[in-house]
């Protein structure tokens, strides 16, 4: 039974902000974070055939990203790559890098996963995923990017009063969701 399916063409719109905020608190460098996310998407495509639909798409992407972050720290901690750990596999039929191609989606909720739930920024993004996609986008442009009302109205072709209605609904939904899941 596969409850979850992959839709790679929507990954960027749906998950890139989440992945970015997950990464930035762990590597504290925008360029590195962007590179790691790019690598994560590509690795995910490569191991898409191993996705069994047990975890959600996002949980699965995060599990790949986690390995990329660990890998990154291994690399910078090893001088000239001496301590670099390469996990390769080879059997009669195949050969390749385990990290790249064999990522499955076991649904294991470790203590670390629980801790991640406690990250406020991710909790907010989590809540935003449950509201209308376009409304969430408008809310993010306004609240996180701090974009001008006029600019957003032009971008999405809406009137200022539309914008405030959307913002109001998003804020109300977000407050309710955070009260349930965060406090």
């Amino acid at each position: 039974m596969s409850a979850n399916t992959l839709d790679p063409n929507k990954w960027v719109d749906k998950y890139s902000d989440y992945l970015f905020n997950y990464t930035i608190v762990r590597v504290n460098n925008r360029e590195v974070a962007n590179d790691l996310i790019s690598e994560t998407f590509l690795a995910a495509l490569k191991s898409a055939k191993n996705f069994k639909g047990e975890a959600s798409e996002r949980t699965w992407l995060i599990s790949i990203l986690k390995r990329k972050i660990i890998d990154y720290y291994r690399k910078i901690n090893s001088r000239k790559g001496k301590a670099e750990v390469k996990i390769k596999y080879s059997d009669d039929y195949n050969e390749g890098e385990w990290l790249e191609e064999q990522v499955a989606d076991q649904f294991d909720r470790s203590a670390e996963d629980e801790m991640e739930n406690n990250e406020l920024g991710l909790a907010i993004l989590d809540c935003l995923e449950s509201i209308n996609e376009k409304h969430a986008e408008i809310f993010k442009r306004k609240t996180i990017d701090g974009a001008d009302t006029e600019a957003i109205c032009n971008e999405f072709n809406i009137t200022p009063s539309n914008l405030w209605v959307i913002i109001h609904r998003a804020r109300t939904a977000l407050a309710a969701c955070l009260e349930k899941n965060w406090f």
């Binding site: 063409n9 902000d17 970015f20 996310i37 790019s38 442009r141």
Partner: peptide, 16 residues
Amino acid sequence: LETCPEEKKKKWREEI
């Protein structure tokens, strides 16, 4: 919270 810059997103979309 931060959002990714749009040009990055565009690049990733194309790559994917």
